[in-house]
Design a protein around this nucleic acid. Structure first.
Lengths: 269, 269
DNA sequence: CAGTGGTCTAGACCACTGG
DNA sequence: CAGTGGTCTAGACCACTGC
C-alpha cells in the first residue's frame, strides 16, 4: 500500500467529460464534470472507506497529485471544497487532516444553544445524564426520517443535559440498529466527550452535516418534570436529522431547550 | 472614468507584507496579508462606495487584473471569496454581478421560516400589513444593538405577515434614523417586494449578513391579538441584527413566529 | 463570433511546522 | 533543514452567453 502504481482513475491526460458518454449520445444531460470534482469524489471515497481515519493526516497534495496523475493545483481545488464542507482540515506546514468531532476547537459543532451571558468556553461542558437507552422497532415516522422500513430495529436514547446544575436540554434520539450494534446506556455514560466523537471511534460513523427544524412548544407532563419547568413554560423544540456521507441519515434527534438562560444562535449570510 | 491610469494600489510587482511595516518593527503582529486579500479589500471599497450598484456587472476579471496590475488568478481568488460571502454573484459567460435582495431566486434570504407542507415557492409571498411606523429616540438597549447613543433618533416599524390569510409573523424593527431619512409607512406599504430590496434601491443600504438569537416565549396581550393566538400559545422569538459592510449594524428586528403550521429551518455543516 | 467566467497546467517562491 | 500548505504568475484551452 506504500505506492499506488498508476491507478489512472481519471481521464489519461486531458480534462474530459464524465458520465455515460459511451452510450452514444443517448444521455439527456451532457453532465460535464470538471477534473477536480472527479478527484474530490475519489478522495471522498477514500475518506468513506476509512483509508484515512478521523484525526489522521491524508497524503500531501503532491502525493495525491502523483497518485491521480493531475497537477497539484487540481488536487488543491478538490481539497479546498472538502475543507469548505468541514470534511478535512488544512493546517499550514503540517498537512491536511480528516475532520473529527473529538477536536478541542470544534466540539459540539452542531449545538447552537449558548448561554445568554458569557461565552461557551466559560460555561464548561454540560453534565450529562442518560435516562434510558432502549432497543425497539421503528415507527413509520422514525423509519421515514432515517430512510428505514417500519419495524426495523432502532435504538432510542433519552438524556438530560444540565448547566451549573440546571437541567437545560432534554434530548430524545433514534439511531438505526445495525450500525450501532453494541451501544448501551453504560457505554454512553462512561464516555467523556461529544456523542458524535464516540460514534466516530466506536462505530465508524461520522456525522457530516445536519438539518434542524425549530418550533416553540409546551412540554408534556413527563418533560416538564425532567426539565424542572412548569407545564406552561414555552420551550424550543429542535428536531435534527444528521447525515453521514452520501446524504445517508444516521440520527434523528429531538431536543427540548430551555431558553430562559440560553438562546439558539444562528448566523445568516 | 473609462480608464484607470495605473493607480498602482498595491505592491508594485511582488507580493509583499501589508500593515505598518514602515514603523520600524515596532508592530507586534507581523500581519502578513496576501495580495488577493488586498485586492478583495479594494473591490470591497468599490462596492461600498457605490461605484457598481446592486444588480450591475462589475468589470471583468481581466479588466480588474489590469487595473490592479496583478494576474487574473489573483483577482479570481479575491472574487471567489466575495462570491462565497454572497456579496457578488458569478454567472458564466455573462460576468460578475453585485448581489441584490431584489433577485428572484434569493428573495427572503434571511427568512428561515418555512411551511410544514409544501415548499416556499408554492406558498407564494406573504400578505404584509404595516401596523405603524414611528420616529422615536433610541433606548439604551436599542442603541447598543445598533451601535448608537441612547437618545439618537431611530425609526420603529411594526408589521404583520400573513400566509393564506393567517397572520403568522409579527415583526417589530428598528432602524438608525440618519440613513433612513424619509422612510414612511406609506412608502413601505406601497412597495412590493422584500424590505431589504427597498433599502437597497431607496436608501443605498445593503444588508450583507445577520445574526439571530432564538427563544421560545409567550405573547403579551397585544401580540396575542395581532397574531390571533391565545396568550398561552408558545411562539418563536427571533431577534435579528443585520449588518452592512464593515460589520456595521443597520437593523434590529424582533420577530414573533407562529410555529403551528410553519417551522424555522436551519442547515448545519 | 467575441467576451465572459471556469478549468488545468507548470513552475516559482513564501510562510509555517517540526526534527 | 526538508516537507507541508499557501500564494502568485503566465498561458492554454473549455463552457456558456448573447450578438
Amino acid at each position: 500500500m506504500a505506492t499506488h502504481p498508476a491507478p489512472s482513475p481519471v481521464a489519461p491526460t486531458n480534462p474530459t467529460f464524465a458520465g455515460g458518454d459511451a452510450l452514444g449520445g443517448a444521455g439527456s444531460t451532457p453532465a460535464f464534470s470538471p477534473l477536480y470534482q472527479q478527484i474530490k469524489g475519489l478522495i471522498l471515497q477514500s475518506l468513506q472507506s476509512g483509508e484515512w481515519k478521523p484525526g489522521e493526516a491524508i497524503p500531501s497534495e503532491m502525493d495525491l497529485a502523483a497518485r491521480f496523475r493531475v497537477s497539484q493545483g487540481t488536487v488543491r481545488k478538490a481539497i479546498d471544497e472538502l475543507a469548505a464542507e468541514h470534511l478535512v482540515v488544512r493546517r499550514q506546514g503540517k498537512g491536511t487532516f480528516v475532520a473529527t468531532h473529538a477536536e478541542q476547537h470544534v466540539q459540539y459543532r452542531f449545538l447552537k444553544l449558548q448561554p445568554d451571558n458569557g461565552d461557551i468556553q466559560s460555561e464548561g461542558p454540560a453534565e450529562r445524564t442518560i435516562i434510558d437507552c432502549k432497543r425497539l422497532r421503528a415507527s413509520a415516522e422514525i423509519a421515514r426520517a432515517l430512510s428505514l422500513r417500519s419495524g426495523d430495529p432502532v435504538l432510542q436514547v433519552r438524556r438530560v443535559l444540565a448547566y451549573a446544575g440546571v437541567p437545560t436540554i432534554l434530548e430524545e434520539l433514534w439511531l438505526p440498529g445495525a450500525p450501532f450494534k453494541g451501544l448501551t446506556a453504560e457505554r454512553l455514560s462512561n464516555y467523556n466527550g461529544p456523542m458524535y466523537a464516540l460514534f466516530e471511534t466506536e462505530f465508524g460513523v461520522r456525522m457530516v452535516r445536519a438539518e434542524e427544524s425549530i418550533r416553540a412548544v409546551n412540554p408534556d407532563e413527563e418533560q416538564s418534570q425532567l426539565l424542572n419547568v412548569p407545564i406552561s413554560a414555552p420551550l424550543l423544540s429542535v428536531e435534527r436529522i444528521a447525515y453521514t456521507y452520501n446524504d445517508t441519515p444516521m440520527e434523528l434527534r429531538r431536543g427540548l431547550y430551555r431558553t430562559d438562560t440560553h438562546h439558539y444562535r444562528n448566523a445568516l449570510s
